Computed example of a mutant assay.
Amino acid sequence: MDPCLNLDSRNLDPAIYGEKYCLIDGEIVSINFGYYERILDQIFYKYNYITRGKINDFVIKQNELNYAASKIRSSNVTTAIIDWIKNVFHRPIDGKNIPNICIIELSGGTDDEISDKTFFKALSEFKHKNDFFHIHVSRDVGKKFDFLIKSVQDLRNQHWQPDMIICRTDNPINDNQRKEIAQYALLKTETDMVINLPKVSHIKYVPIILQEQNIYNLISKELHLEIRSNFDEIISELKKEIKE
């Protein structure tokens, strides 16, 4: 989900917004989808990519088709986003199985994109249920956490409270820094829900480092998911692949 008014990523400057990626149905999207397809071993389609521009276009077309005599209001846009998310969630990911969990990446945090309240309002439909878990992922931070603190404050101004923070850094952070972040963000526990992700030399180190901080069990507990018995084996296989 991207608050931009573009219909897709086709005309975005890669020098500013990063590389582009083409989905199997021709949709031009963020390179993030390439990472998701590679790591999750799934194929994504244009309906998996929501921009504010795409939602606006959809609402206008629906208005023209179904209720042209009515005004288009912000509530129409919010309802469209909610319906879009529900539709994606209930689509089989391999032609037959409905997913147990849906990952929603809400872009923003820079260039005032975070100020788009429509996406937050739509997500609030799911947020107040027991099966919603919000992970706030910071951009790279150095020795100071000013940007992270500001982004958390921006979220709290939108009446959003993170359940977990993944803090991306150049180097590992210490327990005192974890405690500082947790206290400011008003997390449930002092440090457990502050996950540190320092820079790595190989992308497959990412899940290994995250799991070393117990992220899988923490999320599974909060979302009442069944814990996979072979997860440690998967991590071991990743370590072997890196060595090879």
Rank of each mutant, 00 (worst) to 15 (best):
M1R: 02
D8Y: 00
K20Q: 14
K20R: 14
E27K: 15
Y36E: 08
F44K: 09
Y45C: 01
K46R: 14
I50S: 00
I50A: 07
I55A: 01
N63L: 14
L65K: 15
V77F: 08
A80T: 04
D83T: 04
W84M: 04
I85N: 01
H90T: 04
H90Y: 06
R91A: 14
P92K: 07
K96E: 13
I101Q: 11
D111R: 12
E113S: 10
A122V: 05
E125S: 12
H128A: 04
K129W: 08
K129G: 14
N130G: 10
D131S: 10
F132H: 04
I135D: 02
V137S: 03
R139F: 08
R139M: 13
D140I: 06
K143G: 01
F147I: 15
V152W: 00
V152G: 01
L155I: 01
W160H: 10
W160V: 14
T169Y: 01
N171V: 11
N174R: 03
K179N: 03
Q183R: 14
L186P: 00
K188F: 02
T189L: 00
T189H: 03
T191C: 01
P198D: 02
K204R: 09
L223M: 07
N230Q: 12
F231A: 02
D232G: 10
D232H: 06
D232L: 13
S236H: 05
L238S: 05
I242G: 12
